[in-house]
Design a protein around this nucleic acid. Structure first.
Lengths: 127, 127
DNA sequence: CCATTATATGCCTTGACAAGTATATGCTCT
DNA sequence: AGAGCATATACTTGTCAAGGCATATAATGG
């Protein structure tokens, strides 16, 4: 199972995490609010627990599950580099002329603000 | 295949995305840099393309692949609520760092003090 | 045209995993 | 102790995706 990304690939697990973000819940509460069978909930909780996404405390016959931040922070950390990418991505579509070209630096140009869906001469097939 | 989360669950696909964040690449470049067989690369690129993570343009016999931001932004958006969660959790630590906003309005805004997670009589076992 | 390079696709096998159902474990109260 | 509730686990089954390998498509230079 391993990586945090595989854990959150499952929709029901994401739903459980989303539910837990507001407050801790018992298994039964999760079961009712998400309308999924109890064994399913327990199994997903097991996966989440073993991956460090949640932890549980015993409250009489119930078990209260709550979020732990670390694994999702790890995902967040991975995403960080892409945030840098897409903020620098105002019009990278047209800058595709430079494909691995020489390090001869062109003139420093302040960033222009060109907007709009400017797809011209697009031989590309994104299909 | 559907959700962006399932797409990035695959380690090789994450590697490809990470590689593309610096600049666009041809299939052959990806193949060499990641040391994976060419059909594997092509197949993962197909998945990524159909999910909107990348797009390609034709350059002679090559195809140049580059990142598209939307799907990862979607993931990022999902993570947002959890960021709120763990900044409320690491209160003392994050208090400074999260304070980069709010230019001049340091007026005494009576923000309601939110309760943390209420751990009472913690018999807990996170086993 | 032919050979070569670059990329895509088809088929097959294998393994992972989620859901369903049934049952086990554990706690509480009378 | 026994009934009842809450949660966990075992076992089975169906689905689906990833990798390996072979081959197809496509563009290039000679």
């Amino acid at each position: 199972m391993e990586s945090a990304f595989e854990i959150i690939a499952e929709p029901n697990r994401r739903a459980i995490l989303t539910l837990l973000v507001s407050s801790q819940r018992s298994v039964g509460e999760i079961e009712r609010q998400l309308r999924m069978p109890q064994p399913t909930v327990s199994k997903h909780l097991r996966v989440l627990r073993e991956a460090g996404f949640v932890e549980s405390t015993v409250d009489a016959q119930r078990r209260l599950y709550r979020l732990k931040p670390e694994p999702l922070q790890e995902v967040d950390a991975w995403l960080a580099r892409f945030r840098r990418f897409w903020s620098a991505h105002l019009d990278a579509l047209e800058r595709h002329l430079g494909r691995m070209d020489q390090p001869a630096s062109t003139k420093r140009n302040a960033r222009k603000r060109r907007r709009g869906p400017n797809r011209k001469r697009d031989k590309g097939e994104t299909k």
